[in-house]
């Protein structure tokens, strides 16, 4: 049995599936990264992704256009983030409790709307929604092992890789990124040099919402081809953890997301073996807890008399 597992893990299919399940985590982690840098890290990504997944399916089903579906998904997800901004930044509401409220809203609201539209509380399979195509990369697909792993993914998977680079450019190489980081590190100092803090935070939320929404759209229009009740299943939280583990830097965050993707894919493989599936399904969440400990002990922050041994960029949640 052990040999079975080992050969399953060392196969190209397994590596392929790691990348496949990493995609939504990576999108969410990058969104959390941008928000963390801008000082607006929150837990509403879960609801943002869920809403985007739902709106994408509904938009594409009613227009029969992938582009409209994408736009609808982005609009839905960004809408949740803008609500987050309104309540947190304008009405001064606690960020975690607002996040809980928005996640509850997204979870209940999508099922509510699903029931109104399809008379079904579980799946959207009665809607003729579209999905993003998979792409074969010309040269790479001919390389023996690597081709199987890297080629033939959903187009959004490649977009997620692209976004690692784009987020790096945005945060570190553009004036906007500088403003975002300034506001995130010290809003008072940023305000004193004439940066509009609230506006910058809203822009940060907008960008974060856009990236996370892509992850949500991927869930219902790539990873699966329908919308299912609560289909995001904690990925929004794992994305935040990946970003914590990566200390809000693009490449380490990418690696952390891959790690959680690996745990996820591993649990999928092990489920086919003779192991209680519950033990295996818990792996990504346990891995996240361990990751949080690793992150915290490496960047121990001063709290009540403790010394500060190392530079700390991001606060985490």
């Amino acid at each position: 049995m052990n040999n079975n597992i080992l050969s399953a893990i060392l196969s190209a299919e397994f590596a392929y599936s790691v990348i496949r399940v990493t995609t939504p985590l990576l999108f969410c982690a990058l969104a959390a990264l941008v928000c963390n840098r801008g000082g607006v890290l929150n837990i509403a990504f879960e609801g943002c992704m869920l809403t985007a997944a739902f709106c994408g399916v509904v938009g594409s089903a009613y227009s029969q256009s992938l582009f409209v579906g994408l736009l609808a998904g982005l609009a839905g997800g960004i809408g949740i983030m803008m609500l987050m901004g309104y309540f947190n930044l304008i009405l001064n509401a606690n960020v975690v409790l607002t996040g809980i409220a928005l996640n509850t809203f997204a979870s209940g609201g999508t099922v509510f709307a699903l029931y109104i539209l399809c008379n079904d509380k579980g799946l959207s399979t009665s809607l003729q929604s579209l999905a993003f195509p998979t792409v074969n990369i010309p040269l790479i697909q001919d390389i023996p092992m690597l081709g199987k792993i890297l080629s033939g993914h959903n187009v959004l998977t490649y977009v997620s890789f692209l976004f690692v680079f784009l987020v790096y450019l945005l945060i570190f190489k553009t004036p906007l990124g500088l403003r975002i980081r300034a506001v995130g590190e010290n809003p008072n100092a940023a305000s004193s040099v004439g940066i509009n803090v609230t506006k910058t935070k809203f822009i940060t939320l907008l960008i974060g919402g856009l990236i996370a929404s892509l992850g949500g759209v991927y869930m219902s229009m790539g990873y699966l081809t329908w919308f299912g009740r609560d289909m995001v299943a904690g990925r929004g939280f794992i994305g935040i953890a990946a970003q914590n583990l990566g200390n809000a830097a693009p490449v380490p965050t990418f690696v952390a997301a891959l790690f959680f993707g690996f745990a996820n894919a591993l649990s999928n493989v092990l489920q086919t073996q003779d192991i209680p599936s519950e033990a295996v399904q818990a792996i990504p969440y346990i891995a996240t807890l361990i990751g949080l400990i690793a992150y915290s002990s490496s960047t121990r922050k001063k709290r009540l008399g403790r010394k500060v041994p190392r530079r700390r960029i991001a606060d985490g949640l």
Partner: peptide
């Protein structure tokens, strides 16, 4: 995790919820 490792309880408690769920379902099933 917060007291010893200074990891804020938001994400860790959300993860803990899923772990509790699988513990309970695993033992019941």
């Amino acid at each position: 995790l917060y007291v010893k490792f200074n990891s804020k309880p938001v994400v860790s408690s959300l993860m803990m919820n899923y772990i509790c769920m699988y513990i309970a379902l695993g033992i019941i099933n």
